[in-house]
């Protein structure tokens, strides 16, 4: 893992920043979110994909691409969580003053 991180740290950083930005925006966005039912399905899909990656079921290049996608997605999610939390913190601090 350390090898992969050092090999394409730029791409990882990109997905993290993308997540931060998305998280930042999502707090004040007024659109429809993903329904609960969909979330469950997506979570199940993620679990299946992670299981496939961990058990090294997918061979060759596809295996590598799966690993890469999952790592980018995980960092994206982390970025989103941190971004959302930061924005929420900023919004809740400025609200009483307003």
């Amino acid at each position: 893992m350390a090898y992969l991180a050092s090999f394409f740290w730029g791409w990882l950083l990109g997905s993290l920043l993308l997540g931060l930005a998305m998280g930042w925006i999502s707090i004040v966005q007024h659109g429809e979110g993903v329904s609960k039912k969909w979330k469950r399905w997506l979570a199940a899909l993620a679990v299946v994909l992670v299981a496939a990656a961990v058990s090294r079921l997918v061979p060759g290049r596809f295996g590598y691409w799966l690993d890469l996608g999952l790592i980018l997605f995980a960092l994206y999610l982390c970025g989103c969580a941190v971004g959302s939390w930061l924005r929420d913190w900023v919004v809740s601090r400025s609200a009483p003053a307003a």
């Binding site: 791409w11 930005a21 999502s26 993903v34 980018l72 997605f73 989103c80």
Partner: peptide
């Protein structure tokens, strides 16, 4: 609650991937 609105970022993420 927040995570429901994170999906639009997945589109650029896929492109990045």
């Amino acid at each position: 609650r927040w995570s429901g609105k994170w999906w639009p970022g997945v589109i650029p993420l896929v492109i990045l991937w």
